[in-house]
Simulated scan of single mutants.
Amino acid sequence: MSLKPKSWKRVHAVRDAQVKLAIGAAAVAMRNEATLVNNAERLKKLRDNAFDAGHCQNGASLHAQLELAQRLIRADGEISTALVRARQHLAQVERQRTAAYIDRETTSKLLDRAIAQADETAERKAARLPLRRKNTKEAEE
């Protein structure tokens, strides 16, 4: 491999940054899903209470209660759809996070091999060089 040590560090830093970005994206996706689940539970409780029409005294209040119940049912469908999309997005982000981890580990292994090979090459070159002889004048002194 013809990479220089600074390039090795740069490549490894890029892979680390990709992993950190993937972790952050996964955390955001998890929070979004948790928020939607919480909203769906709150909406379900509100919808269950909306079908209790015992406190409606006249037709207008019954009509308002009916309209509220219909809106809650529509909102429940919309939040269910959003939750499905959020779970799909979370799965996609998790796959990207896993791929980033795999890329980082592969890069680390390849860079370790490249460093070892470069060290070995440097040692072989150093071994081939003749030893420096001291000048005879320096030896006599």
Rank of each mutant, 00 (worst) to 15 (best):
L21Y: 03
R133V: 11
N135M: 14
A114R: 15
E138Y: 13
P5S: 12
A114H: 15
A22Q: 03
T106W: 04
N49P: 00
E67K: 15
L46Q: 05
A69Q: 12
A34E: 09
I23V: 07
Y101A: 08
A75D: 08
V11I: 10
R95E: 15
L43A: 06
V93L: 00
V93W: 00
V37H: 04
G54V: 05
K20N: 08
V11H: 07
A60T: 03
K44L: 02
K137Y: 14
E33I: 08
R95L: 12
L110C: 05
E41D: 12
Q92P: 02
L66N: 13
E138A: 15
R71Y: 02
V84W: 02
A82S: 14
T136K: 10
R71P: 01
L3D: 13
L36E: 01
L62Q: 05
A53L: 12
Q88T: 12
S7F: 06
S7K: 15
L21Q: 07
A17W: 02
H89A: 12
A17C: 01
N58W: 09
K137P: 01
I79Q: 07
P5W: 08
E105D: 12
R47S: 13
K9E: 09
A91D: 13
K9D: 06
T106Q: 10
R47W: 04
P130K: 10
T98G: 05
K45L: 08
R87M: 04
T136A: 14
T106Y: 03
H55N: 06
Q92T: 08
P130N: 08
A122V: 05
K137N: 15
R85T: 12
E94D: 07
M30S: 08
V28F: 02
A75R: 14
E78M: 15
A13V: 01
R128M: 15
K4L: 13
N39E: 13
R113A: 11
T106I: 05
L43P: 09
W8F: 12
N135Y: 14
L43K: 10
L68R: 15
N38D: 05
A29C: 06
